[in-house]
Design a protein around this nucleic acid. Structure first.
Lengths: 104, 104
DNA sequence: TTGACATATCGAGAAAAGTCGATATACTAT
DNA sequence: ATAGTATATCGACTTTTCTCGATATGTCAA
C-alpha cells in the first residue's frame, strides 16, 4: 500500500465525499442495487452512474476517480453485466487506519 | 481544520518523512536543540537547517514545506533568535486522527 | 555599522493532477 | 445484426503543485 498515493486520493473533495457516502450507501443512494440480482451478493455496492449523478462531475471523471480509489486500496468493485459496483474496501481502510495510528 | 489541505500536505514523501522524523527528534536529529537556551522550553523542536540537511532539498523548499505543514495544523513552531524550531502539533494531529476514525 | 548566518519570500519553469468531451468497449434486448 | 445503455479509455487543455535559485529580512557578533 503506497500511502502517498492514498493521501493523494483523499486530497480531493469529490473523492472524499464518495468515500463518506459509501459508508451509508442506502442513505445516500436510495436506488442502490436496483440492477443487481439477488444471487450476486456485493453488499453496499453502488453503480458508477448513481455515484456520478450525486457527485455532479462528468462520467469520465467519476470513472477515473473510482478506478484511482480502487487502485490505492480505498474501494473495491465488481462488474455485473453492464454495471460496475463499487464499495469501500474496508480491509484497505483498516490498514490505512493502522498505519495512521502507528506511523503518523 | 481543512482536511483536504492536510491530506495534500501528507501527499509528499519528504513532508511525510519530516513528520515521522519529528516523532523521535533525538534519534533523527542528534544535534537537536544545540542553539536553544535552557530557559526557552520547546521540547522536541528542531531547527530548519537541521531538517534541511536531513531532507536533502533546497533551503527554500524545506522552509516552504514547514510553513505549509504548520498552516494545516501538522506542525507548530517557535522562533528563537535567528533560528526557527519546528515540532509536531500533537493536538492538531490528534484532531486529524479523530476525524479519521469517525469520518473516514 | 558591517559582515556573517538562519530563515522567509519571490518569481519562474517543469512536472503532475484535474477535468472534460469524444470515442471505444462491453453487454443487453429486439 | 442493430440499437441502446453503462462504463472505460483517450487526448487535450487548464490548473495546481513541485522545486529551485535569487533575493529579502531579521538576528548576532565584532
Amino acid at each position: 500500500m503506497d500511502y502517498i498515493d492514498v493521501f493523494k486520493a483523499l486530497s480531493n473533495e469529490t473523492r472524499l465525499n464518495i468515500l463518506q457516502w459509501l459508508k451509508e450507501p442506502e442513505k445516500h443512494f436510495p436506488k442502490q442495487g436496483a440492477h443487481i440480482p439477488k444471487e450476486v451478493s456485493f453488499k453496499g455496492g453502488v453503480c458508477v452512474g448513481d455515484i456520478q449523478e450525486k457527485a455532479k462531475v462528468s462520467q469520465s471523471t467519476v470513472s477515473h476517480y473510482l478506478n484511482l480509489m480502487q487502485k490505492v486500496g480505498l474501494l473495491e468493485s465488481v462488474r455485473y453485466g453492464q454495471w460496475t459496483y463499487y464499495r469501500r474496501d474496508e480491509e484497505g481502510i483498516r490498514q490505512l487506519a493502522e498505519y495512521f495510528r502507528t506511523e503518523i
